[in-house]
């Protein structure tokens, strides 16, 4: 592991603010006896846009799913927005309502209309009056440019539209942090752009974002930090410019040559 530490860049120079949004200390996770996440240390400052990449099975999705407790970690400490993640359900629900998440397969609720998808959590979790929740939902649906689909069901929308609804649904909870788990991996190429545009717009507004993605163009354009993971460890992290032009670790070089090679 010494190698990893040598490679570590001083991330404090990349930070966009002094306020810590997420801090992960020495976090470890096992699936049975399989060690998926090993000694993860990560501090995310408010307003940072972090892209996490790496080969499949490297633990990048597991890492961000630990942040809102969709996966349990066995060792270490995760603090989100000042709340330490524990097994207390109230604690977990509080963190989840502050952290938005978008999934690879959108996971919209197929039995509810687009508008109902967006108003459900504000009404039941935040106890927002229905009328107000609907106004907020329409605001965010306009933002992702599909207000005209509000009364349709998810099954009637294209993949790109569904993913934008999923983003709007998360935004309706007014999260302070957004997690993206390969948001464009299940999309046809012509739909990737519309989702990325939405995400770029979000980043420009200063949202704290952690994004697992293979869209390296997006990483170059938006990220202020790129993290490369392999075998459950953070192998390298750097500013995108330096990360792409001058990777230090052999594994990073190999990975980049494979995905940028053609």
């Amino acid at each position: 592991m010494a190698m990893t530490e040598d490679m570590q860049v001083d991330t404090s120079q990349m930070k966009v603010s002094d306020e810590v949004a997420i801090s992960i200390d020495n976090m470890n996770k096992w699936y049975g006896s399989f060690h998926v996440l090993r000694d993860i240390d990560l501090t995310v400052y408010r307003g940072e846009r972090i892209v996490i990449c790496g080969p499949s099975g490297s633990g990048k999705s597991t890492l961000i799913r630990c942040i809102n407790a969709l996966e349990e970690h066995q060792q270490g400490r995760i603090e989100v927005d000042g709340t330490v993640l524990s097994s207390d359900l109230k604690n977990i629900d509080k963190i989840r309502s502050e952290v938005g998440m978008c999934f690879q397969h959108f996971n919209l609720f197929p039995h509810l209309t687009i508008l109902e998808n967006c108003t459900l959590a504000p009404i039941w979790v935040r106890k927002t009056p229905k009328k107000e929740a609907e106004e907020t939902a329409m605001h965010f649906l306009r933002k992702v440019k599909i207000p005209e689909q509000a009364d349709k069901y998810p099954g009637q929308l294209s993949g790109g539209q569904q993913q934008r609804v999923a983003i709007a649904r998360s935004l309706c909870m007014r999260p302070r942090i957004m997690l993206f788990d390969e948001p464009t991996s299940a999309l046809d190429p012509e739909m990737i752009k519309e989702v990325l545009d939405t995400m770029i717009e979000l980043a420009e507004e200063g949202m704290t974002m952690l994004c697992v993605t293979h869209e390296m163009g997006f990483a170059r354009q938006v990220a202020n930090r790129v993290i490369f993971m392999d075998d459950g460890q953070i192998v390298e992290q750097n500013e995108p410019e330096a990360f792409f032009s001058d990777p230090q670790n052999e594994r990073t070089k190999l990975f980049l040559s494979q995905i940028l090679g053609h």
């Binding site: 809102n68 969709l70 359900l89 996971n107 979790v125 998360s170």
Partner: peptide, 16 residues
């Protein structure tokens, strides 16, 4: 039901 439905509900902060 796909696991994603449970996860989406959880990630929005809905209780059990």
């Amino acid at each position: 039901l796909p696991r994603g439905q449970y996860e989406a509900a959880d990630s929005l902060g809905l209780d059990y």
